[in-house]
Design a protein around this nucleic acid. Structure first.
Ligand SMILES: Nc1nc2c(ncn2[C@H]2C[C@H](O)[C@@H](COP(=O)(O)OP(=O)(O)OP(=O)(O)O)O2)c(=O)[nH]1
Ligand SMILES: [Mg+2]
Ligand SMILES: [Mg+2]
Ligand SMILES: [Zn+2]
Length: 575
DNA sequence: GCCGTTTTCGGCCCGACTGTTTTCAGTCG
């Protein structure tokens, strides 16, 4: 059982309780714990006792016992009891935008509606308007909501979201002209979360009304969901929601802080404020008793400063220890893109890349790098034109020729060797020993059992020839789940072997993910950031790996490729 | 259901928009 599966169980419990009219805070307790379990790196299977479980925030006596039951039996009787009390199609109604627990419960109890089809029929037959608090508009909104539910979009990858956000901001600047003063992206995109559910913009305006009008009339808009004086929400033609909030300039920092979130972070911050007798909102800070405004933050850091905290970087705002670190003065000095000296994962046209050795080298230099590791695929990966030993040697000559003409840059002669099903590497030892950088990755047999996959990867690391474990979980965001593996044991093996583990920066991968890279650091394992470029144009995607590294609390020393070429090769034992 | 330098019981963030309602409940961010 994976942490994600356990998290899903508790989300189901939350929904079922909610539909029975259970206390909101009890429901939210299950949701909160589900989020915290999903973002726990170590598999709960390997937590040895209840005390260890209870160190997960939000896990108390009751939930620890339920996790135990899930791990021991794969089932949760409490969930089954709740399921017996609620029609199976009912929880799905909660996913319809505009429908929450109160309305769904009323529809169920008073009209006997138990699934989406029945809901649609009731709305069309105009039966819903007779319920208290509902009317003809409610029926229309339910029908629209069902359409939206059926057209439901998955979360957008950050790599798509950030460029799209830039485009939208530019479009709005054009459309609103001088009426728009300042606009920034907030929400999960600003926190650089690997996927984003929507785009959240915050702005100030000389003429807020005009800006709102311009926003809801952008050509990219397919539907206006909300349209108020300080906040509007639109759906784009691509089916994606975009929020815009506007506040007076003196409150911009308060709004940016609020809209950057995360929700959990905001709640923690506001609780800290409460204890000091003040109240934080997106407009500023007020005295909890008198309501007098004490601060309107033009800069978001003023909000933290008011609570005697240093400013917390957006990437850390997840309520995963950043408040404790801020209070202790132990916030990390996060990695910056400018500190990256080179890229440790790239392909050329020798394997499945699109560009030549020289083209990749030139492009890396244009980015200001001191080195680029060319890590083409190995023989058994014939779909990716893996290099035979002969071709590998041929490429080495081409790399030498290229380097001969360079003063402050070098191409590193590397490989991304396949970790074969039996855990062996895909080149003879004497070949691997000649290479500057050996990245080793799993590309086949993703369906292996957890133990088998773990043994496979550990064996590869134990060979002593691996410098970097490539994309360690094999996931493709929105397309392929990570393979099942005991990451804790893999990280221990990497530590023993003095191998780094990769943050593969390609936006489809981001592998390791943030919380796993953080666990690696905490175990004392070094990270390597690689773009996995298959084209010169992919090289700049490395920045997404830096974002993930920042979300993992990484500092420059934790990352292999903040080192100079010489230092890097020394660390890898190549000099 | 969880949690505690003011609590082991009694709180649990705060505000915008909509549609229904004559003052607010529900939903969402
Ligand atoms: N104080 C407070 N702020 C919230 C709440 N819900 C959302 N926010 C703030 C923090 C969020 O980052 C921000 C934007 O809300 P979203 O629902 O778009 O969440 P976010 O962008 O973090 O994640 P997403 O990828 O869109 O699902 O609004 C809440 O319940 N309370
Ligand atoms: Mg968002
Ligand atoms: Mg939003
Ligand atoms: Zn690969």
């Amino acid at each position: 059982m994976t942490n994600l599966e356990i998290a899903r169980v508790f989300r189901q419990v939350a929904e079922l309780l909610e539909l029975q009219g259970e206390d909101h805070f009890r429901v939210e307790a299950y949701r909160r714990v589900a989020n915290n379990i999903e973002t726990t790196s170590e598999n709960l299977l390997y937590f040895h006792d209840r005390d260890a479980l209870r160190r997960i925030p939000g896990v108390g006596e009751g939930i620890a016992a339920k996790i135990d039951e899930l791990i021991e039996t794969g089932r949760l009787r409490y969930l089954e009891e709740l399921q017996a009390q609620v029609p199976p199609g009912l929880p799905q109604l909660l996913e319809i935008p505009g429908l929450g627990p109160k309305k769904v419960r009323a529809l169920w109890e008073q009209l006997g509606i138990t699934n989406i089809d029945e809901l649609e029929a009731a709305a069309k037959a105009q039966k819903i308007r007779h319920l208290p608090g509902m009317g003809a508009k409610t029926e229309q909104n339910i029908l629209k909501g069902i359409e939206r539910f059926r057209a439901h979009q998955e979360r957008m990858r950050l790599g798509d979201a950030l460029p799209y956000a830039e485009q939208l901001m530019e479009a709005l600047r054009q459309a609103a002209g001088a009426a728009l003063e300042r606009i920034e992206i907030a929400g999960s995109a600003r926190r650089r979360l690997e996927t984003v559910g929507d785009l959240d913009f915050v702005a100030t305006a000389a003429d807020p009304e005009r800006v709102m009008e311009a926003f809801v009339h952008l050509p990219q808009v397919s539907e206006v969901r909300l349209h108020g004086p300080t906040r509007s929400t639109i759906t784009t033609t691509a089916g994606f929601n975009v929020d815009l909030r506007i506040v007076p300039a003196e409150s911009f920092g308060s709004l940016l802080q609020h809209s950057t979130g995360s929700k959990a972070h905001n709640i923690r911050l506001r609780e800290l404020a409460q204890r000091r007798g003040v109240s934080i909102s997106e407009y500023g800070i007020t005295d909890a008793d008198s309501g007098d405004r004490l601060l309107a933050a033009a800069d978001e850091c003023e909000v933290y400063a008011f609570l005697d905290l240093p400013c917390i970087p957006p990437e850390l705002r997840e309520d995963r220890g950043e408040f404790e670190a801020a209070a202790n003065g132990t916030l990390p000095h996060l990695l910056e893109l400018e500190q990256i000296r080179g890229d440790l994962h790239a392909h050329t046209s020798y394997s499945d890349g699109a560009c030549s050795v020289a083209e990749m080298g030139d492009a890396a230099q244009a980015l200001g790098y001191q080195y680029l590791a060319l890590t083409d695929h190995s023989p058994s990966l014939d779909v990716a034109h893996g290099l035979s030993v002969e071709r590998l040697l041929q490429r080495a000559e081409e790399i030498d020729d290229y380097n001969a003409g360079q003063k402050r840059f070098r191409l590193l002669n590397g490989t991304e060797t396949d970790i074969r099903a039996d855990g062996s590497l895909d080149y003879p030892e004497e070949i691997l020993e000649q290479l500057d950088v050996v990245v080793a990755s799993v590309h086949t047999r993703f369906g292996m059992k957890r133990e088998e996959m773990t043994d496979r990867i550990v064996k590869a690391l134990d060979s002593g020839h691996v410098d970097v474990l490539g994309h360690p979980t094999g996931r493709l965001i929105n397309r392929r789940d990570p393979y099942e593996v005991d990451l804790g044991r893999v990280l221990e093996a990497a530590k023993r072997a003095d191998a780094a583990v990769e943050i593969n920066a390609f936006p489809d991968r981001l592998d390791l993910r943030d919380v796993d890279a953080r666990a690696a650091k905490e175990l004392g394992v070094r990270l390597a950031i690689g773009s996995d470029a298959h084209h010169t144009q992919h090289l700049p995607l490395l920045r997404y790996g830096v974002y993930t590294a920042r979300r993992a609390w990484l500092e420059p020393d934790d990352v292999l490729n903040t080192r100079s070429a010489d230092e890097l090769l020394r660390l890898l034992g190549k000099q």
